[in-house]
């Protein structure tokens, strides 16, 4: 049975439709990504899952519970990390963790969380004095302090530096390894590609696609790009004659070839026959970014 089941969710604020028609199911133990541009309805969707918003239409069950009717039970078992929510400026890290753990029937050991999240040295630091990355880690710790079955994490790494982002990703993988099902809201393609088992791509309040990251990329087309610097001048026709090649461009002293199938093999064979060496050869596969553009018809920024 699905841990989270969302069916035909619809929510509007005044005349603005935030979520038009969203359905998906999250399986036990997976990292499920909700991906989409700003304003696509991601946050409203997770707020409905966590019972913070009452949907206008549609049904939601989380762990077999109704987020509106069974709020108390749901809050014991679902940990939430929200975007744009701060703590009291002068509360210390250990005070916050001890306080939040007192809200739950079966809390985790918050001292272990403190060590696990690399906050042990900051235990007596006030929230307002923490760096952005430390505040984010504390926020994740608070989402986990109740030993939740499901953790919902909204815009996990927004505002973090590259190192802090990678550390946070490692952390999320550890959390999943401990058996927690994770719903991850993000607008970062690299984050989704790295962490998520499956993704719902939400655009204009609807699910545009639902698949694994690799599946989404494949849907965007199997086109590959190869770029290299030829050792001697090269006639384009030599390449365009190949079945695998769809186009040849030149730029920055390099030849850029796009194509499908076993493009690299066909290319290197023809170059070898003509005694041309390909320097600085790079292969570029379609990324989730490309998939996003292909599936929504626009850039996500």
């Amino acid at each position: 049975m699905a841990i989270i089941a969302v069916e035909n969710l619809h929510k509007r604020y005044g005349r603005t439709v935030a979520v038009d028609d969203v359905s998906f199911a999250v399986e036990e133990g997976e990292i499920f990504g909700i991906l989409g541009p700003n304003g696509a309805g991601k946050t409203t969707t997770v707020e409905s899952i966590t019972g913070l918003r009452r949907p206008d239409r549609g049904s939601i069950t989380v762990l077999g519970l109704d987020p509106q009717r069974d709020r108390a039970e749901l809050r014991q078992r679902v940990g939430v990390q929200l975007q744009q929510s701060r703590l009291q400026e002068k509360i210390t890290v250990s005070e916050a963790l001890a306080l939040y753990s007192s809200y739950y029937q079966h809390p985790a050991d918050w001292r272990e969380l403190l060590d696990g999240l690399g906050l042990a040295d900051q235990r007596n630091t006030r929230y307002g004095k923490l760096s952005g990355g430390q505040q984010q880690r504390l926020s994740i710790a608070l989402a986990l302090v109740g030993s939740p079955t499901v953790a919902v994490l909204d815009e996990l790494t927004t505002g973090l530096d590259p190192q802090a982002r990678r550390d946070t990703w490692d952390l999320i993988e550890q959390v999943r390894a401990s058996g927690v099902t994770i719903v991850l809201v993000t607008h970062f393609m690299d984050e989704a590609e790295r962490l998520c088992d499956r993704l719902a791509l939400i655009d204009s309040g609807r699910v545009a696609a639902l698949d694994t990251p690799a599946g989404l990329i494949a849907r965007a087309g199997r086109e590959q790009r190869v770029r290299f610097t030829p050792s001697t001048p090269l006639d384009d026709a030599l390449l365009t004659d190949l079945d695998e090649v769809t186009s040849v461009r030149r730029g920055g002293g390099q030849v850029i070839v796009t194509g499908t199938g076993d493009l690299l093999h066909a290319l290197t064979s023809v170059l070898a026959r003509n005694r041309i060496v390909a320097h600085d050869l790079r292969i570029e596969h379609a990324s989730l970014d490309d998939a996003f553009v292909a599936l929504t018809g626009r850039s996500h920024h």
Binding site: L52, A72, L82, Q84, S85, Q88, Y104, L142
Partner: peptide, 16 residues
């Protein structure tokens, strides 16, 4: 201030 900074919003996701 708690309300403006989202302290209350954060608390509303807990059982308290």
């Amino acid at each position: 201030t708690y309300r403006e900074h989202g302290v209350l919003r954060r608390l509303s996701t807990t059982p308290v």
